[in-house]
Simulated assay, not measured.
Amino acid sequence: MLREATADDVHLMLSWRNQETNRQVSKTSHEITAEEHARWWSAVRDDPTRRVLVYVRDDTPCGVVTFFDLRLDGPRTGAWGFYLDADGLAERGETLPAWLAVMREAVEYAFDGLHLERLDGEVLEHNTVVRQMNRRFRFVEGTPRQELSDGREITVIPISLARDDRRQR
């Protein structure tokens, strides 16, 4: 289940985002400080072009889905990303089912909740597992580009999924 994030979720979101597993596959790889996170939360919570949702599995919050760059007038498009409580899910042996569920629910929210025509995102080239999962959900990869982030050169691959191309239940 996805629900809107609240101020009560801020500390959980930061702890998950700073897990090594999540930092390795993020453009920003440094450990996010409480101050940085507070600035981010302050900026996103009232921004009409963004949504921050918490993924809840078996009554336990265990992930974050963000939608941003939402264009809800004219061609309805937006971008997204997510991260999970990788450590907690791994301890419970729930990583793969949670991952499948959060992606399915996020895509449904994008197209059925936000009524987007196209959903965009990015994935780092070395994140082959996520790239495979994206293909399973019918995302199409665009042209890779080089970026410098946190003092390291990374290859970022844009992804896109059109409403008509999504996998239906």
Rank of each mutant, 00 (worst) to 15 (best):
E141R: 01
V64C: 09
Q132R: 11
T33M: 08
G142R: 03
Y109S: 08
T66N: 05
E105R: 02
L53D: 07
E125S: 10
V140P: 00
V54M: 09
R51E: 12
G78L: 10
T128S: 10
M103N: 08
P75T: 15
T49E: 10
P61S: 07
A43W: 06
G63M: 06
T28G: 02
G78T: 09
T128V: 14
E108Y: 02
R76V: 14
Y109P: 04
F139W: 05
M103G: 04
T28L: 14
E108G: 08
V64Y: 02
R135F: 06
H115N: 14
V102S: 02
M103R: 00
D47N: 08
G78I: 13
A101M: 07
L89P: 02
Y83S: 06
F137I: 12
R131M: 05
A38I: 06
F67N: 02
R138L: 12
A90P: 01
R92N: 04
R50W: 01
L72C: 08
V54T: 03
L70C: 04
V65Y: 02
S42P: 03
G142C: 04
R118V: 15
R71D: 10
V44T: 07
A34R: 07
Q132I: 14
G88P: 03
L124N: 07
G78R: 01
V129N: 07
D69C: 11
G113C: 14
A79P: 00
I32N: 01
L116P: 00
R45V: 14
R50K: 10
R145D: 11
A79F: 03
E105D: 11
R104M: 04
R131F: 06
Q24C: 14
H30G: 09
A34F: 05
M133I: 14
M103I: 10
P48K: 13
Y83V: 12
R57V: 13
G88S: 07
V65R: 01
E35W: 05
F67C: 09
V123C: 06
R45K: 09
W41E: 06
G63A: 03
N127P: 02
E35C: 09
R138G: 10
T128H: 08
R39Q: 15
Y55W: 13
E117D: 11
L53G: 03
V107S: 06
L124F: 14
V54W: 05
W80P: 00
D73S: 15
T95L: 07
F111A: 04
V56W: 01
G74F: 09
L124S: 11
R138I: 11
R71F: 13
V54S: 03
E35R: 07
R135K: 13
R45L: 13
Q24T: 15
G78N: 04
G121F: 02
Y109T: 15
M103P: 00
N127M: 08
T33F: 04
D112P: 03
F82N: 02
A86I: 07
V52C: 05
H126D: 12
D58R: 04
D59W: 04
A106M: 08
S42Q: 11
